[in-house]
Design a protein around this nucleic acid. Structure first.
Length: 434
DNA sequence: TACAATT
């Protein structure tokens, strides 16, 4: 029989050719085994390379863990054997997440902080691929700690770490966000989402440009971009076609999309943004003078200013068909949906943007930079405590040309009383010689 | 107001 306080161990990194009988001798060294089960696939019966192991005595389990866990590597494996309490052993109540650590703080610092509260089983600083601290840490004490240690930064976050379930949920949520499932525009316009959105934006942009007013921050941005594109202007002067930085293809079905009368195709294949403050158009100073409007205002409901804008656009389109035509191409096809963990592009592709309007979120940032290329990531930095934007963010493209185009067009761009600062993000490894 | 993603 086993003791009541026996611990079920998880054993990982076992070669798949080893069965219970092969493993037994290895583990019996530390005490009498109550149960040893190699995990097999439920359907195929395939060896999963791990096992559950319960000793009759708790003490045997602890000995085995300290002697074997990460201590030796079994033949044919490239990682050391794992011997630790199984997930079912209630680890969830002991592991803490420690956030907002200083970048320089080490495992030892964290250990020192938490030592007064009990024996520490494990303490890890979460690090990025480059080894830089991410400001988080895990630690497992024998008893849960709830107090923030004296002397620690008051903003230190100490809470129970996510359980596996929570982690999975969060991942799914993130994934869904990246897939645009929660983007209202997508739901609203279905298959034509990207196209319709572009149309709506153009309408807002043109109206804003024409009237010197602003429907919402995005309209102001879009308006300015329209001016900067300079593929055409209202007087009908068509600029020379320029090489787009990316996204030249027209989405399938765009020519048969709703409102075909507007999207009269012409031979302008793309655009290249020009610096701000183009002459002959209302400058950005005349835009965005109405203060802050909550975003989005882009749903085509009655009484929506955009609804009126839409009607106005029909006239505009009739009067200036060539001017209106580049719409389907001016906004490159929405970047292909690639669920990605990778949030940063190659060197020279990542932008740091400062002086963003307070109400700008990731979506707005994305929209703002979409015309310059494939945006693989756009992140507005938010204060963890208040959930408020800190008015700066990061945008990553998949190529340096797009990034440069975005800098050229958007750096110094005025929104309200502020001018955007758009520059290459500082490389992380600057000043880190090793 | 100034250069990230934390389990």
């Amino acid at each position: 029989m086993k003791d009541h306080d026996a611990i079920k161990l998880f054993v990982g990194q076992i070669p798949r050719n080893l069965e219970e009988s092969d493993l037994k001798p290895l583990f019996e060294e530390f005490g009498r085994i109550y149960e040893l089960t190699v995990l097999k696939d439920r359907f195929t019966g395939m060896h999963k390379g791990c096992a559950f192991l319960t000793y009759c005595a708790r003490d045997s389990a602890l000995k085995a863990q300290s002697a074997l866990h990460e201590q030796k590597t079994l033949p044919g494996m490239n990682r050391p054997i794992q011997v630790k309490p199984a997930d079912s052993e209630g680890r969830g109540d002991r592991k803490l997440f420690v956030g907002m650590l200083g970048k320089q703080q080490s495992e030892d610092d964290v250990r020192r902080l938490f030592e007064p509260f009990g024996q520490i089983e494990e303490c890890t600083i979460l690090r990025g691929p480059d080894g830089a601290s991410k400001g988080g840490s895990t630690e497992r004490g024998l008893a849960p700690c709830l107090a923030v240690p004296q002397g620690a930064s008051s903003s230190l976050v100490v809470k129970f770490a996510d359980t596996d379930k929570e982690r999975t949920l969060r991942r799914m949520h993130q994934m869904a966000g990246q897939l645009g499932i929660f983007n209202p525009m997508t739901i609203q316009f279905g298959a034509y989402g990207a196209y319709t959105q572009a149309i709506m934006q153009q309408q807002a942009a043109l109206m804003a440009a024409a009237q010197g007013t602003c429907l919402n921050p995005m309209a102001a941005i879009a308006a300015a971009q329209m001016q900067q594109m300079a593929a055409f202007n209202v007087s009908g002067l068509v600029a020379a076609p320029l090489t787009p930085s990316s996204g030249t293809s027209t989405p399938p079905g765009i020519s048969t999309a709703p409102v075909p009368s507007i999207a009269t195709p012409i031979g302008v294949n793309g655009f290249s943004p020009l610096p701000p403050q183009t002459n002959g158009q209302p400058t950005s100073e005349t835009i965005y003078t109405n203060g802050i409007h909550p975003y989005p205002a882009q749903s085509p409901t009655v009484a929506d200013p955009l609804q009126q804008a839409y009607a106005g656009m029909q006239h505009y389109a009739a009067a200036y068909p060539t001017a209106y035509a580049p719409i389907s191409q001016a906004f490159p096809q929405q970047a292909p949906i690639i669920p990605q963990q990778q949030r940063e592009g190659p060197e020279g592709c990542n932008l740091f943007i400062y002086h963003l309007p307070q109400e700008f979120g990731d979506a707005e940032l994305t929209q703002m930079f979409l015309p310059f290329g494939n945006v693989i990531s756009a992140k507005v930095f938010v204060d963890r405590a208040t959930n408020q934007s800190k008015c700066f963010g990061f945008v990553s493209f998949d190529n340096p040309t797009s990034a440069q185009a975005a800098i050229q067009a958007m750096n110094g761009f005025q929104i309200g009383m502020k001018r955007l600062k758009v520059q290459l993000k500082r490389p992380k490894d600057a000043n880190r010689p090793y």
